[in-house]
Amino acid sequence: MSLVYALAIAVQMGCGVYLLLSRHVVRIVLGVVLLSAATNLLIFVAGGLVFTAPPVIVQGTQTLGAEAANPLPQALILTAIVIGFALVAFAAALVLKTYRAVGSVLTSGHTDAEALGSPFDAEATRNA
């Protein structure tokens, strides 16, 4: 079973990286989404997937039963999902703003920082 998990994670991550390398900003964002989903799954798998009962303490007992799933990775992933969403939402806003300001959705069109040139030539550029 672990090999299937490993395969799924690896394919998702590989696809995420391929998208991340694109010059299209939306595809970069999609790559980030895939990568964070795959990472969540990786954490999930790392916690060991032996038991499938939800980690809830049954009424009448005071400790978690032996059959319950590992609660720790779940807590970590819950945080990660929300933060991943915040990241993508911000990235989407940035994409929109950049497109409106620069008029391009390709990173090759976002050259304002490079167009500043060397700081040592600043005087010459300003005079030109």
């Binding site: 490993a6 994670i9 394919v11 590989g14 990286v17």
Partner: peptide, 10 residues
């Protein structure tokens, strides 16, 4: 590069 990345992850 992506395949290498996926392979190492696998």
């Amino acid at each position: 590069l992506a395949t290498c990345f996926g392979g190492v992850i696998f």
